[in-house]
Design a protein around this nucleic acid. Structure first.
Length: 422
RNA sequence: AGGAGCGUAGCUCAAAGGUAGAGCACUGGGUUGUGGUCCCAGUUGCUGCGGGUUCGAUUCCCGUCGCUCCUCCCA
């Protein structure tokens, strides 16, 4: 084979498509129920949108962006996530003046340059929601409710919810100081990456999976102990609302998320049935992002979920109902003349909305019936020279094998009757 | 970026330093124009690519390309 799709960019073939459609239609059905409208932003932005929005020190910006110069010499980047773009669009179209609370959802491809593995590819797909304009902790709870609703509606019940609050920037500053002070004596025991993080981004040490690092962190200070009264109160209420909604969660003091814009509530939904990449959904509040992009201070909260990972789970799940190609009618023809007449009949059936197929492989009648059977045709119409000479056609009920000869003039009508009597 | 594994028929997978196999699928026949089950027969391969060792390599060695999983982080 000479040509392959580029590494990490995958085809979604017709075999996979039923799962994708299941996810996409669930998203499109559920989002409006919670009051979210769709927004579509471009698949690329000027690089600074992500560099600034997501944060210069993040893994995503530091090493995972697909960045290139366009012909005008502008640095462009394929979107690695969608929140920054949505906020940019929110400000660009001045939605702050149009509505007090913007509730939007999206669905589409994202790009990150990483080594592909199970549940991770360079082009991947996310669905997500953003609510811009309210700091109500009930909205955080709604967001989590929405995210889990989509998963459970798809039949995934075995998922976990991790929750934390990383407070406001002031809280974090204070906490980071404490954290660094605590970690400094252990500096030599930390992994190389974390030794660097101690300088650049100490919070990221919390979610380092290195055994040594995590056991050191375990006995260290927890950020929730450093929240200001407002943030503490906010978080307390988020939890209260979650209880109210019967959404169970696990507190994870080390959950800090990889993107810089988060404030207060952060959460992840994961599945133990996935491989190493077990996060299905990630999200949180980002009260500072709108302001960072030049707008008035505007609180916001959102989440994003990965479609590939969902599809992986759905494929393993029994009882997901999938609509495969399935025929209503197959029209068998036996020679050139009957094929010619048959095409017209097929056109008529299709215009009436029946899924209809005719032979293009020069199969024998036996072969054609086999094909009809394989694709689940309810009725096979047989048009041979015998039928044609009498202006008739044979209708075969594929379930019973019963055949009737009907006048060509009544064809569509008779097919319709047969299908309806099923 | 580093580590591990794997590339054999359309698919799933065997084999073994000496003629490359099975199941499924496909085609034909049993049924001159009748599916599902059954029986019989048939088609299918640059064994990823390049080099080396050898009388002989698909097998052993080296390289290369591709895929997969893992480390890190995340969707």
């Amino acid at each position: 084979m000479k040509y392959y799709a580029p590494k990490g960019l995958n085809d979604i073939t017709p075999d996979d498509m039923p799962y994708w459609h299941a996810v996409e239609s669930e998203v499109r059905a559920t989002m409006p129920v919670y009051g979210y409208e769709e927004i579509r932003t471009p698949m690329m932005e000027k690089t600074e949108v992500f560099a600034r929005g997501v944060g210069e020190e993040t893994d995503v910006v530091e090493k995972e962006m697909y960045t290139f110069d366009d012909k005008g010499g502008r640095s462009m980047t394929l979107r690695p996530e969608n929140t920054a773009s949505v906020v940019r669009a929110y400000l660009e179209h001045k939605y702050y003046g149009k509505e007090e609370l913007s509730k939007w959802y999206y669905l589409g491809p994202m790009f990150r340059y990483e080594a592909p593995q199970k549940g991770r590819s360079r082009q991947f797909h996310q669905y997500g929601a953003e609510a811009i304009g309210s700091n109500d902790p009930a909205l955080d709870a709604e967001m989590i409710n929405l995210a889990t609703d989509i998963l459970t509606s798809l039949g995934l019940n075995e998922v976990g919810l991790s929750l934390n609050s990383i407070g406001c920037p002031d809280d974090r500053e204070e906490y980071i100081e404490e954290l660094v002070e605590y970690l400094n004596p252990f500096k030599e025991e930390l992994c190389e990456d974390c030794q660097a993080r101690l300088e650049t981004n100490p919070l990221r040490i919390l979610d380092c999976k290195n055994q040594a690092c995590s056991s050191i962190v375990e006995d260290g200070p927890e950020i929730t102990d450093y929240l200001c009264s407002e943030c503490r109160d906010h978080f307390k209420n988020v939890k209260k609302y979650l209880d109210q909604l019967n959404l169970s969660y696990t507190m994870d003091p080390n959950l800090v998320r990889g993107l810089d814009y988060y404030t207060k509530t952060v959460f992840e939904v994961f599945s133990s049935d996935l491989g190493a990449q077990d996060a299905l959904v990630g999200g949180g509040r980002y009260d500072g992002l709108v302001e960072l992009f030049g707008g008035d201070p505007t609180p916001a909260v959102g989440f994003a979920g990965g479609i590939e990972r969902l599809v992986l789970l759905l494929e393993e799940l029994e009882g997901v109902e999938l609509k495969k190609r399935e025929l209503d009618v197959y029209l068998a023809t036996l020679d050139r003349e009957t094929k010619r007449r048959g095409l017209k009949l097929v056109q008529r059936l299709r215009n009436s909305g029946f899924k209809t197929e005719i032979d293009y492989l020069e199969k024998s009648l036996q072969g054609q019936l086999g094909y009809a059977d394989r694709y689940g045709a309810d009725v096979t119409a047989i048009l041979g020279p015998q039928e044609l000479s009498e202006d008739e056609i044979t209708l075969r009920d594929m379930e019973t094998g019963e055949q009737t000869l009907v006048p060509l003039s009544d064809f569509t009508e008779k097919v319709k009757n047969l299908l309806e009597s099923e």
